[in-house]
Design a binder for these strands. Structure first.
Lengths: 201, 201
DNA sequence: TTGTCATCTGTCATGAACTGACATAATCTA
DNA sequence: TAGATTATGTCAGTTCATGACAGATGACAA
């Protein structure tokens, strides 16, 4: 990796970190692009060369996490039923985060706090999840052999499960990956109880 | 109702209609507040006295529809299980629209086309749905007697059902309420097949 | 009817989020 | 080191959104 590429990656991360810190400190709406750019010593125009919008920088960690999840999903064995594969892919993604760089973990949790605190960003995350749902649907349809209403419902149910699992957490729970994992498992268990056996086949 | 109040309601509807027509004609991003205001012969400043943002005018019909749904939900008999009450409230809302003023119907369908065509607005609709979900959750929790993970899941499942039912429609399906109803019933039937009896009690 | 009050509306000024154009500076490659 | 690429800064301009104030309009009582 050349110097140019390394510098770019560094600037990108610096912009995300500076933005998240400012968002947490003084709120998303009240911090300006100028402030974020100044904190990293680049021009405001350069900010927009890294991120298409102010919203995008706040959602960058979430977007990255979704890419990780998708990659985990594609690595699941063919024998697993769709929902089982989805659940394990989720567990794998959380594990990667837990065992990864502390800075990455901190960044992810900060981003979650910002999302929870800002309706605009929360909506953006929903849009992100919906976009991701299309990619998940492809995998579910592939495993089931048909792209029908049921495949869509299995996919939507997974999204709901994740959403419910992450939602309504206290700040403590939001800041602790183990707590998150526990909550997630409770929700997966609940789904198991509520669904007819073989519902996702 | 006094003249002032009538005038206000008229201006509001005129702004929505003008905005939706412009959005459909030339796209959401490219139409300006100035254009919308000019089409209704009011100042741009006045537009913002009726709607907090450009997004809000596009989502006004969706927001109104959600209020109707909530009202239908509260009218459902106590004996119905949560999901049954939700499904019937949805049927009731659609029926009200079907049998209501043709202009209201046209406005609702136009708004749906705009939402489908515009990612930003789509995200906004998600935010609306999430906000509404909180209100739905209250009713589900009330009927079940407890606000727990299961109540949240029942609520989220309903939201998913509606979303899947309305999603991936052709423009024709989007423009025809009977088609929408049919699709919705198919989805409700599917949920019935996939869930364990009494799952929402 | 008329005068007073509350409310709505238009005008103006301002700030912040973007975007295109172009020049400069940094990196890469031969 | 020279020349090609690519990143960055500067500048000008558009649009969204909001506060302040003045004028217009409907509401209401004497």
């Amino acid at each position: 990796m050349g110097l140019r590429e390394r510098k770019k990656a560094k600037t990108r991360v610096a912009l995300i970190d500076a933005a998240l810190d400012l968002f947490l400190e003084q709120g998303y709406e009240t911090t300006t692009i100028d402030q974020i750019a100044a904190a990293v010593d680049v021009s405001p125009r350069t900010f927009f060369r890294y991120f298409g919008s102010k919203e995008e920088v706040a959602l960058a960690p979430a977007a990255d996490a979704q890419d990780v999840f998708l990659s985990e999903l594609h690595d699941r064995p063919e024998t697993e039923s769709p929902f089982t594969a989805l659940a394990h892919a989720m567990r794998g993604s959380v594990a990667l985060l837990r065992d990864g760089e502390p800075e990455d973990k901190a960044r992810f949790l900060k981003a979650r706090l910002v999302v929870e605190a800002t309706p605009t960003i929360f909506a953006g995350q929903m849009r992100l999840m919906m976009a991701n749902e299309q990619r998940i649907l492809e995998e579910v349809a592939r495993r089931r052999g048909v792209d029908d209403l049921r495949s869509q419902f299995v996919t939507a149910t997974f999204t709901s499960t994740i959403r419910v699992g992450f939602e309504n957490c206290t700040v403590e729970q939001l800041s602790d990956i183990d707590e998150m994992t526990k909550r997630l498992e409770d929700t997966f268990t609940l789904v198991d109880e509520m669904m007819v056996p073989g519902w996702d086949r």
